[in-house]
Amino acid sequence: MAYSGIALPYLWTIALLSMGTGLYLGVFVAPADYQQGESVRMMYIHVPTAWLSQFGYGLMAFASAMALIFRHPLADVAAKSAAPIGAAFTFLALVTGALWGKPMWGTYWVWDARLTSVLILFFLYLGYMALWATIEDPNRAARVAAVFALVGAVNLPIIRFSVDWWNTLHQPTSVFRLDGPTIHPSLLWPLLIGAIGFTLFFVAVLLVRMRAEILRRRVRTLQMQQAAR
């Protein structure tokens, strides 16, 4: 709590600055694509949100594994706090993808492998949150939700490789490739700065939520003590 309290203002500053820089460069400075024209600028929001939707689930699954193996109480808190943020980014990725798909593909939604697997990811987030909401005992809810998060992690590689395994409408990976990015540097740099900014933003919101969750648990314990007295 003490360390995160000191770190948070700096984190917010850097996150908002780099998000702003990335978005500014992307929207006003970067050149328009020769094929997609101005609508390529949707990429500077769509790609970071889509990346964070998977990062969020990976973090949640990792924290769940830590919670199950080492029983560190903070791991539970981290996994629980990451879920709504991850779900929100998944939703944003789906919405921005749909808005981008309309001018590019001529439709808001297609049932291709990448889109379907991301939609399933969204459902997994919702199921995870539903588990937390329905089980009253927080310790039991933490264990059960952790098992669910780990089972659901099989979806992550499916999302990652869906565009390579199935030949679909969604374009294949163009940034994180073994043979280097296939995207032009003038488009890549704003994207990378923006992605770092979005990620720091995610971490900042996560820390705020974790602090709130710890305080909520303290309040709960105090109330229990009060009631027992």
């Binding site: 329905t134 089980i135 098992v147």
Partner: peptide
């Protein structure tokens, strides 16, 4: 079975099981 095991001891677990299991059925 995974979904049923997750929802053991939850009141109105049937609905929860559907939400948990259907994504895996896709």
């Amino acid at each position: 079975a995974v979904g049923a095991a997750l929802a053991v001891g939850v009141r109105r677990g049937g609905l929860l099981i559907s939400l948990l299991v259907l994504p895996f059925y896709v």
